[in-house]
Nucleic acid binder design. Structure first.
Lengths: 352, 352
DNA sequence: CTGTTAGCGCATTCAA
DNA sequence: TTGAATGCGCTAACAG
């Protein structure tokens, strides 16, 4: 093909193996292996020759062969539910950063909120002998499968209920309690909560926080004020619209996550409700747009990137051989006061 | 440890191998291999027995061993420059979706805009015998290394200049031309352009479009109206502020990407400039927040997710053996008119 | 249709 | 300090 000239005449097809490097350096494969790996004794001069040969030939060790010998590939799996959601993207970024620094690669699987797809991912991780797996569970099956096979697992953001693995979560209940307490202190008495999964995951804990805040303030709870959009709602904004029509006495909305917050915000905007005068809004999760809009959204900021980092660190310890029993790290959310909340019927005092 | 009871009594440590499955089914490894892989002839009864045995034992094939025999692992690499940027997250999501549907796994590397880190990633992909690699190049080295080693490569969003690989990009020049023409038609004559890399990548093409629009309208170009923030600016908003102070006659700003757009928008907001009355704004790239803010940002929408899908499809064809010469797909951006643009000194007419 | 043989690239014994 | 031998788990020839 001629165009191989630039590569120094070597064929583009043939992988350079350790044997060839050894030949080029006039030694044996095993010596070359030791020289390149840095283990065991190799004479300085020989070592230099071998390294030179490897560089000249463009040698790249084959991890397949390596992990076939040893225990695992250096790969670490990550399963998230929606990469297009900034929350998961930030999580993945934190994980990747930590993993890369430790010389591992991240294999990313998007399960789109489906347990089945998460399970497929888990199987793939098993097949590639992943050193460990991080996942935001959508069920127990994936975690169970991995744990059964002895793969270190760290759950992130949510818990599957499997006891025998580490986890890093954010204190959803506390964050929700603070957010709702804030609204109660401002004088709100009919605070709606909108979420997309009541029975499981973070939604449940945030609902607990919502209730706890009401109890602490001695404000009665009304079932009708909780809107559960269900998993992956088709038209969240439409559902919010219907809800607000049915409950016109609501003076504030607590949105349980960024997806819900967007639907609420857009709907309030669409119907021309003034925030916070007509309706206060607090979001759990703080995305870029929430500090850009006018007024800024009062929100519960989650240390997402840090959560990814922490989870990856925990996993790396397990991979390194840490044997202790399952640990759970709980990170603290941070309440960020902006302009979308005020006493009922009052315009915002300030917009930072 | 006792807790293995649930797994059916098998040890958690030992991987189940094909040999064990074969033994369990009372046959040979190669027959078991054929039965499980689906290739070659195997009697129906035996096949069922083998499958049952595999299921019973929880057998998971070892891809390391498989790729050691054959050509490559099923892994596909993706290199992006900043996963926390919604643009890249969407790109990755599109890629993942397509790859997963084809039974491949995606290994994601974030190079943080550094050529060195991209090169590290490329080496890792080589080491794992990746079936192919997708990358948004930050230089030529990574692409060159991969191509030299015969790994199929598809470049996304940007071009490195390496001729011998496929690429999928968006027509930056055209998108920029349309955006700037729109401003010119509204009557703007001093339109600033803000970007973060003039000499390379998409910034260069968008600058071309900016110039082309001016030439087409017969409006002279002023060098001082182009603000180049440089790669990874420390304080983009501060730079924009200084620029606007130095060029108070500017009536419109064309932001070359979402990062720049955010800096521009925040700075205009900070100094209390009314958009579009005091200053019109157009963004290249259309993120969530741009349609949420008031007024909505007029923007050039890029089909990012689709770009990821297309690139992955191209790569899959190469992996499947497609031999033709390098192809380039150019996707068309879409101009989205919202409320952030109007004739100089005019408030927005409407806010959709 | 099935089993035996061989070898992918490497790291790790063990002898020299 | 070095090299020859071995086997990780799997699949592709081949022979039966």
């Amino acid at each position: 093909m001629g165009k191989d000239a630039r590569t120094g005449g070597r064929s583009r097809r043939a992988r350079v193996t350790l044997r060839e490097v050894a030949q080029e350096a006039g030694t044996s494969p095993s010596t070359a292996s030791r020289a390149l790996a840095g283990h065991g004794y190799v004479a300085e001069g020989l070592k230099a020759r071998i390294e030179a040969a490897a560089a000249r030939l463009g040698y790249v060790p084959d991890v397949s062969a390596r992990s076939l010998k040893g225990r695992s590939s250096g790969l670490v799996g990550l399963v998230v539910s929606d990469l297009r959601n900034q929350f998961y993207a930030a999580l993945a970024a934190g994980v990747e950063q930590t993993l890369a620094a430790a010389g591992h690669q991240m294999v990313l699987v998007d399960d789109h909120g489906s347990d089945t797809q998460a399970l497929d991912g888990a199987r793939a991780f098993l097949a590639m002998r992943a050193a460990g797996v991080l996942l935001a569970p959508v069920g127990r099956t994936a975690t169970e499968l991995l744990v059964e096979h002895g793969t270190p697992v760290v759950e992130v953001d949510r818990r599957s209920g499997v006891r025998s693995c580490d986890a890093v979560t954010i204190d959803s209940e506390r964050g929700a309690r603070e957010a709702v307490s804030h609204l109660l202190e401002l004088g709100h008495r009919r605070i709606a909560m909108v979420l997309d999964e009541t029975v499981w995951g973070t939604g449940r804990d945030r609902l607990k926080g919502y209730r706890a805040a009401h109890r602490a303030a001695g404000v009665p709870l009304a079932r009708r004020l909780v809107l559960d959009l269900g998993l992956r709602p088709a038209d969240p904004q439409g559902d919010v619209a219907a809800f607000l029509d049915a409950n016109p006495d609501v003076t504030a909305v607590f949105a349980a996550n960024n997806l819900v917050a967007e639907a609420v915000w857009q709907e309030l905007q669409r119907r021309g409700s003034a925030v916070p005068k007509d309706c206060s809004v607090v979001s759990f999760d703080d995305l870029t747009w929430m500090r850009i809009v006018e007024p800024g959204l009062t929100a519960v900021r989650q240390p997402v990137y840090e959560m990814g980092r922490t989870a990856a660190e925990l996993l790396l310890e397990r991979i390194a051989g840490e044997r202790g029993r399952a640990r759970t790290h709980t990170l603290e959310p941070e309440f960020v006061l902006r302009g979308s909340t005020s006493a009922p019927g009052t315009p915002a005092e300030q917009t930072p």
